[in-house]
Structures are given as C-alpha cells and as structure tokens.
C-alpha cells in the first residue's frame, strides 16, 4: 500500500507541471496577441511595449511560464485583461464559492437518489419495474443539459411561476409567515440547477448500483445469508448494499466530472455567477488569464479528486494495487 501511495504521489507534481505548462502554452499562443486584447483600442507601439513588460509577456514562453508559475503558486494569477484593475483571483474566488456550493449539493443528491433507485431496480429484477426504471434513466441521461434546460425553465418559471427564472441567492432563503415568523427554507433559485445537474448523475449511479447489486447477489455469502433464514430485506440492506457500494467510490469522481461539465451550461443559461458562466464569458471576450486560471483550477481539482478516489479504491480493494505492480 505504501509503495502504491508513494508512486502515485510522486507522479502528482509531474502531472501538475505538464498540465499547467500545456494550458499556459495554449493560452499564450491563442488567437490575438494578449497584449492587444489588454490594450483595447490603443495601438501605440510604446504603450504596447509597456503593457508587455507589465504583464510579463516578454521573453520566451519558458521565461513567461516560469514568471507566471512562481506567482501562481502564491495564489496570484495576474490581472484580468478585460475587467482591468481586478485581479483574476478577486474575480474567481467568489465564483468558485458559488459553484462549489452548487456542486457539493448536487453530488449529495446524486447519491441520495441514485443508490436507492438502483437497489430498487435490482430488487425488482425480472418484473416490469426494473426495465422501466432503467430505460427511463437511460433516456433522461441521454438528453443533453443544453436541450432540456430551456423547456423546463420555461415550464416551471415562465408558465407556472413556481420558481425564479434564474439567478442565485445563496443556499437558504427566509420565508415570512405573516411578516412575523421567519422560517428558513431552501432557496427557490436552487431547484432548477439542482434538477438539471443531478438527473444525469443519479441515472448513472443507479445503473451502476443495479449492475453491481445483481452481481453481488449471486455471491456465495449472499446465499449463505439467505440460507440461515434472514429476510430478503435484511439480505439486501446488510449484505448486498455494502458490497454494491464499493465501485461507487470511482463513481464519485465520474459524477463530479459530469456535474462540473454540466455547470458550464447550467450556470450560463440560468445566470448563476459561478465558474462555468464566468468561463463562458471569458471565452467570448478572450480574457486569457481568466480562462487559464479557471481551467487550471478545475484541472487541479480533477487530478487531486482522481488521485483520492484511486487511493481510496486501492485501500478498499487490494487487487487494484497488486494488479498495478504486476503490470509495471
């Protein structure tokens, strides 16, 4: 185990270096000199030269990367090219907080809904309920967020006024009864993004839980549990469920990836001030240091997340690390 952990951790800095350099190079070689983007209408060579110096855009790509990386490690990602006077960090941090709240909430719902649904489908295997649940979920996860969101938005917000059209208001809202008693309720702004972000995720989780639950239920220890006279419910909850949860560790990473990718569209369409919507705006306005920063933040988050799930999986299932050392 220790060897595996060390091997995986040793490759982490290398991965981070390759990813950040790759991202940096792409952003620097992007369309339009970043200097002219920053200068706006100005085309005076002297001014351009000054901006180049100020922003550290002079010298070879390696020198630029070195300067940028040293500052990035201290948390300084430069200044926005478009919203001048604001540091990228100032702009990105509040948006990260919004996105993080939404994504964490989504991932919780993905598992809270997905696991029982998958168990339910496995429980009813051979009856109509199983294929019904599975094909409905398959259908729901096949429709892209960007197709399904506007109709739901129109139906719930415009047609029936159940929820706000879009925007963000934090997690908790206060509901006043008679203007006197304050009751904290979940913010209605949350419903729409949560629906759209969790549906593909819990469909996937439910299908995975179903498959593993069916595999587990053919194991000897499950037959033993039945043989000693336990009820079907006890067998399902105490013997099948815990073992069917194992592969879910990897599903956390996959679901989170789906949620983060879905956020790009959800946040943009619903006007939620998160990382996704911000990236969309930055791509449109070619604000390279912002795109660079947001991509890197998401990339680092993914890499660390993947590492953690792999390590967790290796801890749970010894075959993973043994297999890895056999092959290499």
């Amino acid at each position: 185990m220790t060897g595996y952990v060390i091997r995986r951790l040793a490759i982490l800095p290398l991965t981070l270096f390759i990813v950040s350099f790759f991202t940096f190079a792409i952003a620097r070689y992007g369309p339009g000199d970043p200097v002219t983007v920053a200068a706006g209408q100005v085309r005076d060579p002297e001014v351009l030269e000054r901006i180049r110096e100020e922003r550290g855009l002079n010298g070879t790509i390696f020198e630029q990367y070195q300067r940028w990386a040293v500052r990035a490690l201290e948390g300084d990602f430069g200044e926005s090219f478009i919203q001048q006077g604001y540091s990228v960090r100032e702009l990105v941090v509040p948006k990260m907080i919004v996105s993080a709240q939404l994504n964490v909430l989504s991932i919780i719902f993905v598992f809270v809904i997905g696991v029982p649904l998958g168990m339910l489908a496995a429980w009813f295997q051979g009856k109509w309920i199983d294929p019904f649940i599975i094909s409905t979920l398959l259908f729901l996860s096949a429709i892209p967020v960007l197709v399904i969101l506007p109709p739901i938005q129109w139906l719930l917000a415009v047609r029936f006024h159940i929820i706000p059209v879009g925007g963000w208001g934090g997690l908790i809202d206060i509901f006043w009864i008679g203007g006197v008693i304050a009751v904290p309720i979940p913010n209605p702004h949350l419903y729409l993004p949560l629906i759209v972000l969790t549906v593909p995720g819990f469909s996937g989780v439910a299908r995975l839980v179903r498959i593993t639950a069916l595999q587990v239920s053919r194991e000897d220890y499950v037959r033993t549990a039945r043989a000693k006279g336990l009820t079907e419910a006890t067998v399902a909850l105490r013997h099948v469920l815990p073992n069917a949860m194992l592969p879910l560790v990897t599903a956390i990473g996959l679901s989170l990836a789906g949620i983060v990718e879905g956020s790009y569209f959800t946040e943009t369409l619903l006007g939620i001030p998160g990382i996704g919507a911000f990236t969309f705006e930055s791509v449109r306005s070619r604000d390279y240091d912002v795109i660079l920063a947001t991509t890197l933040i998401v990339a680092v988050f993914f890499i660390v997340m993947n590492l953690l799930t792999d390590l967790a999986y290796a801890r749970i299932d010894p075959r993973v690390r043994l297999g890895a050392s056999n092959v290499s």
Binding site: T23, E261, Y264, V283, I291, T295, A299, F301, F302
Partner: peptide, 8 residues
Amino acid sequence: PGLPMLIL
C-alpha cells in the same frame, strides 16, 4: 477535465 480543456 475534458470539457474545460477542450474549450481552452
């Protein structure tokens, strides 16, 4: 992350 990298 696939989508963000592809976007970049």
